[in-house]
Design a protein around this nucleic acid. Sequence first.
RNA 1: GCGACCGUAGCUCAGUUGGUUAGAGCGCCGGUUUGUGGUACCGGAGGUCGGGGGUUCGAGCCCCCUCGGUCGCCCCA
Length: 415
Amino acid sequence: MSKDKSAKIATPQPVRGTQDMLGDFADRFAYVVDAFERVRRLYGFKRVEVPVIEPTAVFARSLGETTDVVSKEMYSFDDRGGESITLRPEFTAGISRAFISNGWQQYAPLKVATHGPLFRYERPQKGRYRQFHQVDAEVLGSDSPLMDTELLVFADHLLRELGVSDGVTLNLNTLGDADSRDAWRAALVEHFQAHRGDLSEDSLVRLDKNPMRILDSKDPKDRPIADSAPDIDAYLTNEAQDFFAAVTAGLDAAGVAWKRDARLVRGLDYYRHTAFEFITDRLGAQGTVLGGGRYDGLIENLGGPATPAVGWAAGIERLAMLVDAERIDNRIDAVIALEDDAALAQAQQAMALLRAEGISVEMVANGSPRKRYDKAAKIPAHALISIGMRDGALNRNVRGDNETAKRVDAILQDI
RNA sequence: GCGACCGUAGCUCAGUUGGUUAGAGCGCCGGUUUGUGGUACCGGAGGUCGGGGGUUCGAGCCCCCUCGGUCGCCCCA
């Protein structure tokens, strides 16, 4: 290696908003994914895998060609054939596309779950990255409120399984069917127009672009106007009322606590009926831990058959940040400190025997032999095995918690 | 896109009103001690103080620019 500083190669930097995980956070991440896989099986959700890349049209058409999200916040590029490709910013559109491409109507109602990386070109902040990861559950091809309930109970179960449900509340709203939604939207616009003069600058822009968003504005100036705006309730059709009542009755029957949040809205037109967010106050400005809703219009938007669907997604990083440290067990079963290289073969044999019995083990055999024991002791493990030579004979010692130490001792009797 | 704060050793950080050769802990390497022991001690390697420009006799410290990070706003599928 040259010491000449001018010859130094410029260090490549990670892409903004990406993260490398090792140790504690990687363990937390895996803990969340493991719990999700366990719980989704309990609810009979099939594992589904869809591509990380899709034709840009999949997201542009589902999200609306002209929205900010599509025009500025997607990772899009032209591939070598000149086709516009986008790194998926969400699971729902890709799963819907797969549903159409593969004729999965035949399996409806189809309960599927997946997890993996997603990409959004946004300014990173706490709990918000350009490459991030979600767990996701969807039910396609059912217009039954039973499925909304099922999904919500599943979500609640997952949060309990992770031990993060304390301080997290389920906020629930209905956006009604298309007729209810349109009538409510018109009433909202009328209300906000009447109070134009008192709205914040941001909300005046929202009034033109996305008036429903004024309802969840953070600006204190907007709050009185947003709070006095009409709820959707007066505009709900009988069918929409019944649907919402069926969902909440199901939650009550299953013992899932929920809170009506008449201010909870979705920007996109394909959302119908149920909208929900599990919210915490422990994650700074990014409080939503799990969110979703019914999107009966989406698959049709993609050119598929009219297909009702409902789903949710949750950020793995955010969940991982909420998991209590005591729940993360990063200990391996056993560590071997090889204190004399003359016993190397026996130590290798010992590892083979232990691993054959399903006991995880690794060995410390580098550096000064007299310091290997201390090094090994610093690796979190249930048992610590020292292997060395004494008076020309093999010397072995096992310390650790009783159960593991006993098993290890029994397996290593013959070496 | 906008705003605030922060960039000093591999990591976490200290560094006086601007004043000799920039420090500590952890980690790494080596040695000594202990010798069924998770210990202690000694030593070593490792820094263009993010980068560039400026002010000054003198800059890690002050000013400007730039790059990066964090948090917030906007947006939130």
